[in-house]
Design a protein around this nucleic acid. Structure first.
Ligand SMILES: [Mn+2]
Ligand SMILES: [Mn+2]
Ligand SMILES: [Zn+2]
Ligand SMILES: [Zn+2]
Lengths: 153, 153
DNA sequence: TATTTAATTGCAACTTACTTGCATTATGAA
DNA sequence: TTCATAATGCAAGTAAGTTGCAATTAAATA
C-alpha cells in the first residue's frame, strides 16, 4: 500500500483551482484523477489511472484529461521505455528522476538532477527551449530473487 | 549530405564478422543495413533505414534485423520520445548521449556521460543490471527561425 | 561439391497505445 | 436561468511494432 502524501488535500484543491484558472472545467473524472495523483505515489500509466478509479469515465477521458493537465503543468509525463507513458503529479515543483525496476516497474525517486550542466551546454550551442529526459533502470532486490521470466529481464 | 565515417569499411567488416560469430547469418538485407549504419551518422528509425536502402527487404526484416543486432551489441536503440525507436551503430564503443532538435530531429553527439554517479548510486541501493537513458531536447538554431508549425514545437 | 540444418525472409494478420470525429452532455460565466 | 463552449462517450482510425507460418537460403558438414 503506497503511503499517501502529506498535504494531499490541499494539493488537490490547488490543482482544481489551477484547472479553473486555465479555463478548464472541474469534472468528476478530473477530480477523481487528481485525487489519485495527489494522494498516491506514481507515476501511473493511463490504464492504471483508469483501472484504479471509479468516476474516471472512459479511458479516452483519462487520456484527454492527463494531456490537458500536462499542458497546464499540473502533471509531468515520463517515459520508461516500455510502451506506455506514465504521469505523475507535479505542480511547479522541481523536477526529479527515477530508478525504475525493469521487473516490477517499481520506482525510487532521485530528488536531484545531474543534467543541468548538459542543458546549459545545449543552450550555449544555440538550442532554445531545452529540456531533458533521464531515467535509471535496474532490477530491484525483490526482482533479483524471482525467476527471470517473472522479473521481466 | 552526412559525412561518412572514417574506417567505415573495416567497421562494416567487423560487424559482419560479429554476426557470423554469433550464429547469425550475413544476408543481403543485413549487409545493406549495416552498410548504412556504419557509413552514415544516425541514429535512424526503422522506417528511415528501410526507405534509404535497396536490398533491405521487407520492413519486418529491418525490424527483426535491428533487434537481432541489438541483442549481440552491434547497435544501440535510443528513444527520442516521438513514437519511433532509433538505432545507431555501436560496436562495443563507449555509450554517448544526444542533443535532439524537437523540430527537425537532427542530432548532436555528446561524447561523455554524466550519469555514472547515478548508476553507482542505484547499485548501492541494491539494483542489479543497471543502465540509464538520457537525451537532451531543444530547438536548433535553424528551427528557431522557421515558423513554429514547421519546427514542430 | 552436394547435402543438411536451422536461421532468415516475406506476407498477412494481429496487438497495443494512443488519437480523432462527432453528436451529446454539462460546467460555470453572464 | 440562459448560453457558449469545454468535456465526455462511443466508435472508428492510426501507426509502430509483433507474430505465425510456409518458403527461402546461408553456411556447417559430409
Ligand atoms: Mn516521480
Ligand atoms: Mn549517437
Ligand atoms: Zn522490481
Ligand atoms: Zn532543428
Amino acid at each position: 500500500m503506497p503511503r499517501s502524501y502529506p498535504q494531499a488535500k490541499s494539493r488537490l484543491e490547488a490543482a482544481l483551482q489551477a484547472l479553473r484558472e486555465n479555463h478548464s472545467r472541474v469534472t468528476a473524472p478530473r477530480r477523481a484523477i487528481l485525487k489519485l495523483l495527489t494522494h498516491e505515489h506514481g507515476p501511473f500509466t493511463v490504464e492504471e489511472v483508469h483501472r484504479r478509479i471509479k468516476n474516471a469515465g472512459d479511458v479516452v477521458t483519462v487520456y484527454r484529461s492527463l494531456a490537458a493537465m500536462e499542458e497546464i503543468r499540473l502533471v509531468r509525463r515520463c517515459d520508461f521505455g516500455d510502451g506506455a507513458y506514465r504521469y505523475e503529479f507535479n505542480m511547479g515543483e522541481h523536477h526529479h528522476h527515477h530508478i525504475v525496476c525493469r521487473g516490477c516497474r517499481s520506482v525510487k525517486t532521485l530528488d536531484f538532477c545531474v543534467a543541468d550542466g548538459l542543458e546549459r551546454m545545449a543552450r550555449q550551442l544555440g538550442y532554445a527551449n531545452v529540456s531533458h529526459a533521464l531515467e535509471i533502470f535496474g532490477l530491484c532486490r525483490r526482482c533479483q530473487k524471482k525467476p527471470l521470466e517473472m522479473a521481466g529481464a
